[in-house]
């Protein structure tokens, strides 16, 4: 967490607003347009669980405070429900900005501000990479092992198994080679400075 007491220093130097530009490009939006009305935070169903309100994230991006934005739990708690995006009076794709920030956080090696959410997304994509489709049981197990939250939610998992809502064996997409190629392209793009996608 930043030291909130020390003044934020803005050098006024001629450097471009790099971080703002990157986020704008990735989310195809203009964060500079944000006039901080707070309607995004007001309507966000998960704002209560965030360390920075969505409005504050927009301000961090405007001010180039990348580290704070990327380390926040906000971007991981965000469920991408698009309430903010659909209500923004400045037509900023706020949910898209959250996507961009999550992606940048991962690429730049930030530990997800919410560990469980990070493990979940990783586990989910691992499954897709492996089978071409998501396999809930394997996802559940991988997530449990990844977070070591072994006992949480077991009753629900058990019920779902009992009701045959989770298949024991995964379904597999035959064109797995294509799926693998897409994952390889994703990794390759990231190495080539994937932030600038």
């Amino acid at each position: 967490m930043p030291n909130l007491k020390s003044p934020l220093l803005v050098s006024g130097g001629p450097e471009k607003r790099v971080f703002l530009g990157e986020v704008d490009a990735m989310a195809a939006t203009h964060v500079a347009a944000c006039y901080q009305c707070g309607k995004c935070s007001g309507g966000c169903p998960l704002s209560f669980a965030m360390d920075y309100q969505p409005r504050q994230i927009m301000r961090l991006v405007q001010m180039g405070l990348a580290d704070e934005a990327l380390a926040s739990n906000t971007i991981w708690v965000c469920a991408t429900c698009y309430t903010c995006t659909s209500r923004c009076p400045r037509d900023i794709d706020i949910a898209g900005v959250m996507d961009a920030l999550r992606f940048m956080a991962r690429r730049r090696g930030f530990r997800p501000g919410d560990r469980n959410v990070g493990v979940f997304h990783r586990s989910f994509l691992n499954g897709v990479k492996r089978f071409g489709r998501s396999h809930e049981l394997m996802l559940f197990v991988e997530y449990k092992l990844g977070t070591m939250r072994l006992t949480e939610d077991l009753p629900l998992g058990a019920k779902m198994l009992a009701k045959n809502k989770m298949a024991i064996l995964p379904e597999i997409t035959k064109g797995r080679a294509e799926i693998a190629a897409l994952f390889r392209e994703s990794a390759r793009g990231a190495e080539k400075g994937g932030d600038k996608l």
Partner: peptide
Amino acid sequence: KAEDTLLGRPIEVEVE
């Protein structure tokens, strides 16, 4: 020397 009241923190901006 000011406060960025939107961030809620002190700010110092250097200009010419």
